[in-house]
Amino acid sequence: MMEWLSLSPQEWQAVGISVKVAFWGTLASLPIGIALAFLLSRKRFPGRALLDALVHLPLVLPPVVTGYILLMVMGRKGVVGEFLATHFGIVFSFRWTGAALAAAIMGLPLMVRAIRLSFDAVHRRHEEAAATLGASPVMVFLTVSLPLAWPGIMAGAILCFAKALGEFGATITFVSAIPGETETISAAIYAALQTPDGETNVMRLALVSIAISFAALLAAQAMTRKNRSRQGGL
């Protein structure tokens, strides 16, 4: 009776690619996300508002446009993509790595927002105390700001992962949906919808998608709660 719930090998493949793409996309964007969040939370510099807007642009831009920009910049004939392919042999277009790049860019605004809030909540007074104890700005960051913001950083990473998992528009525009390479859960659902009698497949994949996203959101909420209680500790 529950047989319709078991995934086919190709569907498992799509789930695997989605998780792989979301994982590596999140991991790659984490250092950039932390740096951007810290910069936006603590520093005042010319062009700060512009940088803030640029980071948040993928949130409001149609995903297809983001995918198109990626194609123009990072594609084989793109400004950066051609350089990377010629000199380093790194190719993003029509590869799962390209899907990870698209996922990272789409997830970055959510990640930066969560981490920034966490840095905002880290009391400057602890950082001042660390400086009077001989900690250089780098050591203050590594030993005080970063550990205190850690639950928020984890929450940001999980949100980015969840967003990356559901990414569709930018991914399909930039790397298409090649089964076994770039076909993610979302792309597989879309393909199944185009197929006669594909409703069962759609439902199965949708359930998997809901389960993974729901678990990620619950984990993010737990991290945020932990962050709040830690910040309120002293």
Partner: peptide
């Protein structure tokens, strides 16, 4: 000299212990 190079200890009114 920045604060971290001054070797000036500071006991704040609020203790400012590191909570982590």
């Amino acid at each position: 000299l920045p604060a971290w190079k001054r070797r000036i200890g500071f006991v704040f009114q609020d203790s400012r212990l590191f909570p982590h």
